[in-house]
């Protein structure tokens, strides 16, 4: 940010700045979208661990499809839902690389459920960041498997009817039952305290891979203000008061810990 130097008087030192692993590209997300916060936390983890030159990200299909523009690390953009399979291939072919996938709930928990479950069950040594915003954001706010009972979306205008479409999938609880995964945790970023906790979880999920511990997944219960049709501060409150009731936060599995 070139404007900074002209605006900052002498005697002040930088205390918070954009992580090095983030590029200068502007995010393509809507105002208040939690994808942006999660993206920054990943970049901070990459910087802190000093792995920028050997990290490969797998971008999903969804609002985060342009992820490869936002980072100064290598990226592959996978077909919808296949990010865990692509990550498996890259990690197995070159175990020196640090490989992470970044996926929404439509991507990971609907079309990509099989790839996710089997990568977790095999205990692949990869890091998965799973942004659960309870909706298909990119395509216009349709119901996702994670949509809450009674929640209005463009395909459930009267609210999700569980008799017709089943119940919200608790992916993290499902995966935590398997023997394969090393670390499964659910976090949120709706206020600064939770952002700090999510930051530590993401760091741990990357460190696990460096230590060869195996499959680590951080689910982030996130807000999509656009499709909730709420101003961002109210969307954050909606997450705290509604989404977190169905998707409780905390570690679901920590192997050997």
């Amino acid at each position: 940010m070139p404007q900074a130097s002209t605006q900052v008087p002498e005697g002040y030192v930088k205390a918070f700045f954009r992580p090095r692993s983030l590029s200068d590209a502007k995010y393509t997300y809507c105002p208040g979208c939690h994808h942006g916060i999660v993206g920054r936390l990943i970049a901070e983890a990459i910087d802190e661990l000093g792995i920028q030159d050997r990290t490969v990200g797998i971008a999903p299909v969804g609002c985060a499809v342009f992820l490869y523009q936002f980072y100064r690390v290598d990226f592959v953009q996978a077909a919808h839902g296949r990010a865990c399979a692509v990550a498996t291939g890259i990690k197995r072919a070159n175990p020196e690389l640090v490989v992470f996938s970044y996926q929404g709930d439509g991507d990971l928990a609907a079309i990509g459920t099989a790839e996710t479950v089997h990568a977790a069950n095999r205990g692949e040594n990869i890091t998965v960041i799973f942004v659960n915003n309870q909706v298909y954001g990119m395509t216009g706010g349709e119901m996702a498997p994670t949509t809450l009972p009674g929640q209005r979306t463009t395909t459930t205008p009267e609210g999700r009817d569980v008799r017709l479409t089943g119940y919200p999938l608790r992916i993290s609880e499902m995966l935590a039952q398997l023997d394969g995964p090393a670390y499964i945790t659910r976090q949120s970023v709706h206020d600064v305290r939770h952002i700090q906790m999510a930051r530590r979880a993401i760091l741990k999920a990357f460190r696990n891979q460096l230590e060869g511990k195996g499959f680590s997944l951080v689910e982030i219960v996130a807000a999509c203000p656009t499709n909730l049709k709420l101003p961002p501060p109210q969307a954050n409150r909606w997450v705290a008061e509604n989404a977190l009731k169905y998707f409780p936060l905390g570690d679901l599995k920590v192997k050997g810990g």
Binding site: K14, F16, G36
Partner: peptide
């Protein structure tokens, strides 16, 4: 909390 990483702090 800035989703767009638009803020630098000194």
């Amino acid at each position: 909390v800035c989703p767009d990483v638009a803020i630098e702090v000194y």
